[in-house]
Design a protein around this nucleic acid. Sequence first.
DNA 1: CTCACTTGACTACGATCGTTGTCAATCCTA
DNA 2: TAGGATTGACAACGATCGTAGTCAAGTGAG
Lengths: 200, 200
Amino acid sequence: MTAAHRTWAGTTLADRRAARRRQLIESGLELLGTAGTQAVSVRAVCRTAKLTERYFYESFDDRDTLLLAVYDQVAQEAHDALVAAVRDARDELADLARAAVTSFVELIIDDPRKGTVLLLAPLTDPALVRRGSELLPNFTALIHDQLPASIDDTERRLIAVGVTGALTNLFTAYLNGTLDVPRDRLVDHCVRMLLAAARP
Amino acid sequence: MTAAHRTWAGTTLADRRAARRRQLIESGLELLGTAGTQAVSVRAVCRTAKLTERYFYESFDDRDTLLLAVYDQVAQEAHDALVAAVRDARDELADLARAAVTSFVELIIDDPRKGTVLLLAPLTDPALVRRGSELLPNFTALIHDQLPASIDDTERRLIAVGVTGALTNLFTAYLNGTLDVPRDRLVDHCVRMLLAAARP
DNA sequence: CTCACTTGACTACGATCGTTGTCAATCCTA
DNA sequence: TAGGATTGACAACGATCGTAGTCAAGTGAG
C-alpha cells in the first residue's frame, strides 16, 4: 500500500493534508480579515490553526503564498455567489444589477472578514496589491462594457472607474460601521447608481 | 549665551534642528510616497536623509510619529491649496467645484508622492488609518452638507460616501497610470459628477 | 510485534526592526 | 587656546520574523 493512501486516524494522508490546508487558510482569513495584514505571520497562523510550522510549509511555499490562497478563495466564493445570483435573475439590466449587489452585500454581512479581505486587504498588503489590481479592474471593465456605445471610450473609462470607487467605498464604509444605514437602503442606492451610470 | 541660541556653522541650534526635521520628513515622504509604508523604517529614513538615528529621535518620538508628521504636512498643504483655490473662485457651485478639483489634480501632478500619501498610505499603514478615516469623512461631510435639504439624511450620506469613493478611485487610478486619460477630461468628469450629485 | 511513517513540541539560524548607548572627531565661545 | 557643546559613525540590545531542522512519541500495515 502506498504511503499516500495508507489510512491514519481514519483518513488518508491526502485527506489530512487537505484538512490542514483548509485549517491554515481559515486561520489566515481570520487574521487577515480582523487583525489586518501585519498580524498574518507564519507563527500566528500556525498558533491559530493549532498546527506547527512544519505543516505550514507542507501546504504553502511561504507566507505570501498563504495570503494569496486566502484571497483567491474568498474571491472565488464571491465570484460563485455572483454568477449564481445573476443566473437566477431575470435577464434585464435592473434585475441583474440588483441580484449582483444583493449577493455581494449578503456575502459581507454573512462574513465581514471576507468583505475586508476582498476590499481592504489588497490595499493593505504588498503581496495582494497585484491581485486587487486585477480584480477591481475586471469589475470596472464589466461596467465599462455595459455602458452604451454612444459614449466615447474615455468617458466610459471615467464612469467605470468612478462607479467602482463609489461601490467599494460604500461597501467599505458599511463594513466598518461608518455608514450606518439599513441594508436595503444600501442595496437600493447601489442599484440605482449602477443604472444611472448605465444611462446615456 | 544659552546653548539654544549659540551659533554653529552659521546657524542656531533651533535652526539646525528644524532643518534636520524637515529633511527627515522629506525623506519620509519620499519613501512613503514611492516605496510604500513598509519601506519607511527608521534606518531607511535616516539613510535617505543622510542623518543618523540620533537625530531621528531628536525630532520624533518613534517611527509612527514621523509617519503622522509626513501625512499631516501633506494634508495641510492640500488643505491650503484647496482654500486658496476656492477663495479665488467665483462664488458659484460650479466654479467652486472646478476650483477644488483642479487644485487637487495640480497637487498630485506636481508631486504624485503627495497624492499617494494622501489617498493610499492611510489604507496601507495601521498608524495612518485613523488619520485617513478622519480626513475623508471630513470631505464626505463637506459634500453631505452641500446636498439639497429635500433629500433625506440617509440618502445624503449614501451619496456623499459614494461620491467620495468615486473621486478617490479616479484620482488613485490617475496616479498609478491605470486611468490613461487627459488631465482636463479627468477634471471635467469629476466636476460634472460633483454637480450631478448635488442636483436633487 | 516490528518497523517505517507520521505527528507535535521544540530549537536554531540569519535577517531586520526600533531604540539606546558609546566614543572619537569637530566646532564655537569664553 | 582650553573646554564644553555638537556631530557622525557605529555597536549593542531585545524582539520578531521567515524558514529549516531535530527528536521523541504516537500509529497502523505487514
